[in-house]
Design a protein around this nucleic acid. Sequence first.
DNA 1: CAACATATGGGCAAGACACCCCATATGGAA
DNA 2: TTCCATATGGGGTGTCTTGCCCATATGTTG
Lengths: 218, 218
Amino acid sequence: MPPIRVLIADDQDIVRTGLKMMLMAEEDIVIIGEASNGHEAVQLARELAPDVVVMDVAMPDLNGIEATRQLGELCPKCAVVALTIHEDQQYFFQMLHAGALGYVPKRAAPDDLVRAIRAASEGHVFLFSSVASLLASDVLSRIESGEGELNKDVLTEREREVLVMIAEGMMNREIAERLTISVKTVERHRENIMNKLNLHSRTELVKYAIRKGFIDLK
Amino acid sequence: MPPIRVLIADDQDIVRTGLKMMLMAEEDIVIIGEASNGHEAVQLARELAPDVVVMDVAMPDLNGIEATRQLGELCPKCAVVALTIHEDQQYFFQMLHAGALGYVPKRAAPDDLVRAIRAASEGHVFLFSSVASLLASDVLSRIESGEGELNKDVLTEREREVLVMIAEGMMNREIAERLTISVKTVERHRENIMNKLNLHSRTELVKYAIRKGFIDLK
DNA sequence: CAACATATGGGCAAGACACCCCATATGGAA
DNA sequence: TTCCATATGGGGTGTCTTGCCCATATGTTG
């Protein structure tokens, strides 16, 4: 059986070195190239036609998501394993929709990455445990809501609006004044938000909003 | 000349491996231990008394800034080199004030990290170019505003501890239980924190803590 | 139409929070 | 030694939050 030919794409030198060392220890894997940004990754993938591209999500020039999308057209035989510090819903789903077969956080054990690479090289999907549950819940809600769009980001416009103001540090009364609605309605929106997201305090809402990039932290 | 004994503290397995491989190639450097969070880093540093601790800024449990601060007391002979994905002012100054002798972004070349380690082991300071300029401008503004003590509105150890727990979303009662003190005392600490920082709600405390890198946003 | 999501609001209760008052003990700086 | 910062805690008061009950009006969609 020929070894799995792997291309590494990560902008961080240290991470690339770590990956190389880690993967070189595996007998069925060979590193055939390295890229430090998305453009380079796409370029090299077309030239080298690797079996698997280990792709960082966040890279300069062309990010991993776009690069993966392009690879789907330009080099459909290259499987992509996403490597990321983000265990966020957003990146995760974007990467999957872009065509990644694996999704492994950098904090994962080396073994998980190797498993993801082996799986991807055979067309299988490997998702790290913490993100796999995201898929499950997404699929579930999709089935329940009868399918459709993925903009099912749960919150309504109004709720998002309220969430932002909460995360900005405003009290319910202030928010009510700003939106010219009653405090009661603000409370109701906040309540719905908390139920939907399964959060139970303002502080958790703040952190959620920051993670999701709803506010600026300035 | 004896080799420089280095302890690596980073929560990401891949980064740790990368660092190890990279540093093992240097003849004057030996890796004597690895930690995957701040607590472990402090613990191991006390046991092993390394010459240099390569410390990630963002780690679970106890972040690199706090860990560095603690090391300054518990193991003053350990030099700390901060390794980070953040090239932010805030993290940078926090880390310096905490006592780090080096500050190297992960995107830096391996050589820069090695230089930082060598410098730190001799008590010198190595700052990566992109952050070094931050120091210059800070020094300038400090001279202009003509004051010496930066201790002005700095939180005490206990206050910082409470702040972190608040920012993590815990209630006063929970914090009191965790610290085995009364709710009243927690409230008092919180009150002092708010007065010192001129903040007036939990949500603002959360954002402050995140900006300052006191918590991880996970 | 019926069912549902969305946005709007009122009432109520328990508890959490923010901001005051007060006090004691300790250890270091003036 | 006196003063101050730190850490500890009790009391009280009023506001804010959270969670749960209820309701109505307006859409959309099966």
